[in-house]
Write a protein that binds this DNA or RNA. Structure first.
Lengths: 150, 150
DNA sequence: ATTCATCTTGACGTTTACGTCAACGTAAAC
DNA sequence: GTTTACGTTGACGTAAACGTCAAGATGAAT
């Protein structure tokens, strides 16, 4: 059951990528769709993989890295040593992702702060045409704005 | 006070990039260090910018995107209309980052789950040489593993 | 039978983000 | 004064990730 299949353009439309890109992922070993004559046939599994690929891209990973990640799932019923290696690699990936999460949390935090400062400044200016300059306004609020702006 | 400066190789070592890369960022308008004769002189501000650039890269943004982000800080004391635009752009960036955060949270969640499954499986195997196959083991634990593996 | 839509496989082009020389300037060290 | 260390500007090379034709196969529609 649930043996639904997709053509390449169906998937392309659904995920807003070009068929060319999908074939390219196959060339690079990230997808292995079935064939029906010449045509590629994508199953549920391939769809799931494509989702993984695109999420990986959104997170800034290279196709080679994404391939490594996907290969972790291809353990099948390999030997135990192989699975231990997979486990180790997975844990390393996890650490990298957690680092990235810290990066993004920082970025969000700072950007929120800066957005707020600009917003506040604009509000002040609205009711007081000759309020302090932006630079004075920024000083003492310890934003990244003050560090990066000249 | 705090007018410390850096040479290009100092920064390169500190952040583990090549001088070539730093010059490249300048070519692309992401940095504007001072000069002392021929040589570039990097101040606190430039260092902060370089940090922003590298964090942006770790998050998978292109240099062009990072430049747009940095330019948001270059508002200076521009006209109010300009600052309103900056505010809007910043809020859009914020939305994008929040989307990315959801992506990464998902990825971390799933990877943790999968790591746990593999770990459990290996433990079972350790005390019971002819335990169920990995595929059977995975079934019914609803991991992504089951979807993506063939 | 032929037109049309959709697929296929090359093959070459393009953009991004640097790496890698080459040739030269400058300032301190011997 | 010349070697050494570090800087500079081109200019060309390259890997990744596709885009963009070109030329042909296939199956459904007219």
């Amino acid at each position: 059951m649930s043996d639904k299949t997709y053509t390449i353009t169906e998937l392309a439309h659904e995920f807003e990528v070009t068929p060319r890109a999908i074939r390219f992922y196959e060339d690079k070993g990230l997808l292995h769709p079935g064939r029906q004559g010449m045509m590629r046939v994508y199953a549920r599994r391939d769809r799931a993989r494509l989702q993984l690929i695109l999420r990986g891209k959104r997170l800034g990973f290279s196709l080679a890295e994404i391939r490594e990640m996907i290969d972790l799932y291809d353990v099948g019923d390999g030997r135990i040593e192989q699975m231990k290696l997979t486990l180790k690699r997975s844990q390393e990936r996890l650490s990298a992702l957690e680092q990235q999460k810290r990066d993004i949390d920082d970025a969000i935090h700072q950007l929120r702060q800066d957005v707020r400062i600009i917003d506040d400044f604009l509000k002040v200016k609205e009711r007081n045409r000759d309020a302090p300059s932006f630079k004075e306004f920024v000083q003492g609020r310890g934003a990244q704005l003050a560090e990066v702006a000249e």
